[in-house]
């Protein structure tokens, strides 16, 4: 049941990505071209998403004791605003601006069977694992 729910949530997410236009690089670059020829369309994706997530996390979640198919809600616990967060977000923004793909659309677009997307995905995973490896080496040393 848990796996079926995961598949359904993923499918709805992927459907939303394609419907919204997030899987079209030209659209994304148009949205990020704020200081040039701005196409505001994709701002509505975030508006739509937050329109649902905000009321849920602020008012709905507190009324539910536990998830339907898991023991506990796993919410992020970090609260520190540090260089790591800022540098990470900054790098992510640069990579996003270079190609026009963020992780969700990068995976969803695999549906288009375009080999170029796979290059992006493999490079993205490499970046994540290199960072994770360096992280763990540094923690082990200190």
């Amino acid at each position: 049941m848990k796996l079926l729910m995961a598949l359904l949530c993923g499918t709805l997410f992927g459907f939303g990505l394609a419907l919204s236009g997030m899987t079209d690089i030209a659209n994304v670059i148009g949205f990020l071209d704020l200081f040039g020829n701005w196409n505001p369309t994709l701002a509505f994706v975030m508006v739509g998403g937050i329109l649902v997530s905000l009321p849920f996390f602020q008012f709905g979640l507190g009324k539910i004791k536990a998830p339907l198919f898991a023991d506990v809600f796993r919410l992020p616990t970090k609260t520190d605003i540090d260089g790591r967060l800022i540098c990470g977000a900054a790098l992510f923004g640069i990579g996003w601006g270079l190609v026009g793909l963020c992780p969700g659309p990068a995976i969803g677009s695999l549906a288009y069977l375009d080999i170029d997307i796979l290059y992006f995905g493999v490079a993205m995973l490499t970046g994540m694992f290199v960072t994770d490896f360096v992280d763990r080496s540094l923690t082990a040393k200190s």
Binding site: L91, G95, F120, M124, M128, F129, V130
Partner: peptide, 8 residues
């Protein structure tokens, strides 16, 4: 781009 997105 993919690599930078991964690290970031």
């Amino acid at each position: 781009g993919g690599f930078i997105v991964g690290v970031g």
